[in-house]
Amino acid sequence: MTSPPPLIEQHVLEYPGGYTRSVGTAVSRYLTGLRDGVIVGVRIGDGRVMVPPTEYDPETGAALDEYVEVGPAGTVVAWTWVSEPRSGKHHLTKPFAFALVRPDGADVPMVHVVDVAAADEMAVGMRVMPRWASERVGYVTDLDAWVPISDGETPSAAAVNTAEVSGEPVTGITVPIRLEYEINAGRAPSKYLRSLAEHKIIGQRAVDSDKVYVPPRGSDPTTGAPTTIEVEVSDVGTVTTFCVVNLPGLSEFAPEVPFVCAQILLDGSNTPWFGLVQGLPADEVRMGLRVQAVWADVLVPDARSIKWFEPNGEPDAPYDTYREYA
């Protein structure tokens, strides 16, 4: 018998709107410079000019404040080729080079991109100049790319910025970071989640004790030993403790506040289950309340198959029966 394929879901890790970064003195000088069409570095403790600048020496951590305008032309000191730019990450849409470029007047090369048509146009030692974005907002891509300079050519000054920005120094940037993952539930949780789709709750019993874990995670946390014995538990349980939530918009199954979020000890299980309690006013929910799962109309291998719990009419459980779980 072959086991069913693992449960896998796509997951996106992204702070909505992007990280809001305040940039501090040195990065402000750098980004403000890029916005204004110049490259700013800083003189470090050993006398070299480093770009991008930092507020502190890269070797000693000592404070730095001697900013130096460098470029505009520069020299490629190392490069690699990106044959497939990634949408939403790279700002260039055609294949390009990442390079270490040392601007004239700087001693330290900086990481940025070089825009040429093909990898065979790249070489260490090649001379490049900035291609400035026409709309510059105080972001690292205001320098759109370095591009080759032909012999005898002189880089011209950056064109007038077409973006509507103030002349004030750049103090902050917003950085979008969207990462995609393919998450698998694991063996034990998959069995449990699949049981929900069959209107059952399957947990696992620890090998070394009689304790039943629901949801199971695949190991007995007290010993680290795999839990391999499957046990069906009831969809009826006892509220061991709870809180009344007044923050709206937290759960699709509790559109209105107040709602109750409870730890529920299912009959036959030894670990609390976190669930919603509905079907009675929030101020009547109490510890010891006996409740039964309310299942969704369409069952899926997902925690959402149980919408919430409602009182089942049984008398409250005595405190001593669940004290060690509260």
Partner: peptide, 18 residues
């Protein structure tokens, strides 16, 4: 995260029952 019961009530919702 997929497959884990969401903390439907935030950090306070975790600690308030305790």
């Amino acid at each position: 995260m997929p497959f884990t019961a969401p903390l439907v009530a935030g950090a306070g919702g975790y600690f308030a029952p305790l």
